[in-house]
Amino acid sequence: MKTIGLLILRIKEYLILTLFVVISLVLIFNNDNTQIRFLRAFAIGFVGTLQSGVSAVPNVFELQNENKYLREKNIELANEVAALKEAKLENIRLSKLLSLKDKNVLGVISAKIVNKSLVQTRNTITINAGENDSIKINMPVVTDDGLVGKIVGVSKNYSIAQILYNKDLRISAKVQRSRVDGIFTYDGVGSLILTNVPKAADVNPGDLIITSDYSNLFPAGIPLGTVIETGNLDNLFKKITVKPAVNFSILEEVFVVKNLPSREKYELEKIFMNK
């Protein structure tokens, strides 16, 4: 304490000088005339230069806090980006489905897949639309990419559809380019194939397979898939492997087409076969 007192006594002239200079400067800067505006501008510039010089020296504690804040913000923003990406993808899917709905003259019922199996020989999907939505057995199920399958079971609010990867589903199909007919089916071991195609038929990899006019269940012209490999099954027929138009592993929404088989056509064909 004594030392501090001595120190103050030793520098009292400088302390008084500082006090008077500060009072004078306060008085000066409380004036509002042209000179002071210039002085203030100069003082602000000078202080700003000093501050920018001082700010170049990093404050470790401040940096730690800033780092923590930025990490938290980063996680928050990453979550937000993920949610936005999800929303964007859903938007794209729904937009495509809506455009399909507009194009389809038969009328469609939209539905969300609530369950699906892809690894069995008889694979199905369960959708959240049923009798209450006017869904009936044998109605085709599609997406904007192509055919998914057909309805095989209906409850009040849910339906089950056979998908292309189901051994029980056989579809009358044709090669779009060469109009060659065939039966589109699942071989039960992982591949979709086009059978009953004569060995001499014009089918090449890349050809698009679509539903045929002969089908009593499905409207004609719905894409089924693309030929990826052609070979010989036996002396008479080709073995054609097809990549499906629909990617079943990422399928989430579908449309059920309000198209039922023609009863008259079905009855006529049945009578003729029985004769």
Binding site: L17, V21, I23, S24, L27, I28, N30, N31, N33
Partner: peptide, 16 residues
């Protein structure tokens, strides 16, 4: 009455 504080500053420094 024009520039309060300016002469005070100059004379203080001069006295010092």
């Amino acid at each position: 009455g024009s520039f309060l504080g300016l002469s005070a500053l100059c004379y203080t420094i001069t006295g010092f």
